[in-house]
């Protein structure tokens, strides 16, 4: 009978709609979970003044426009964070590495035309003349803007750089700690 059929039909379609709505809701929750945060992650692998400078301009710029910023320093990038060089308690190769590596941000070479540090000095002078902030000013600014800086545990260990040789206020972490931030980021850069 057509008259009794109608309500049954409506029940069935209501059930179907409720089910689809529930599916949709769980899908939205899933997508919200996967959506990146307002975060930018940078790997600083290089220890070249020009590259590191670009890294800090990006980091401070991103922080200024309201992004949370994570910087992960590894291999040559660790030299940027050095505050002192210690030789005691190091193996022969670690000592060699320590002696031949820059002792801090002020000693970094440029990636091109370095000529035993003359190029780096020249670039710094040119930046100063153009009123561009120095690397050290940028690093202070990054701290002020609460940029998170992480020193790679593994490369620090390989190169024999003690945590006591690095500046204060760093976190120590590995690839998983970087990935935890990078996968939640809108942009990730390798420098």
């Amino acid at each position: 009978m057509a008259v009794t059929d109608v309500p049954t039909q409506r029940d069935a379609s209501t059930d179907e709609l409720t089910k689809r709505l529930a599916e949709l809701e769980s899908r939205v929750a899933e997508l919200e979970e996967a959506r990146p945060e307002d975060r930018v992650s940078l790997v600083i692998f290089s220890g070249d003044l020009d590259r590191v400078l670009a890294g800090f301009v990006l980091a401070t710029g991103a922080a200024a426009v309201g992004q949370q910023v994570s910087m992960f320093f590894t291999f040559w990038g660790l030299n940027v964070l050095k505050k002192s060089t210690r030789l005691e308690g190091k193996s022969f190769f670690e000592k060699m590495m320590a002696i031949m590596s820059p002792g801090g941000s002020e000693d970094l070479p440029v990636s091109k035309m370095n000529y035993f540090g003359v190029g780096a000095k020249m670039l710094r002078k040119m930046m100063k003349d153009k009123n561009v902030s120095s690397l050290e000013e940028m690093m202070d600014l990054a701290r002020e803007l609460e940029v998170k800086m992480v020193a790679c545990e593994m490369s620090r260990d390989v190169m024999g750089i003690g945590i006591d040789e690095l500046v204060d206020g760093l976190e120590s972490g590995g690839v998983a700690s970087f990935m935890a931030d990078a996968l939640d980021s809108r942009a990730s850069l390798f420098i």
């Binding site: 301009v57 401070t60 710029g61 200024a64 426009v65 561009v132 902030s133």
Partner: peptide, 13 residues
Amino acid sequence: RGLNCPMPVVKAR
């Protein structure tokens, strides 16, 4: 005035 990238935005923030 006189400031270069990224300082104008950083200061403005």
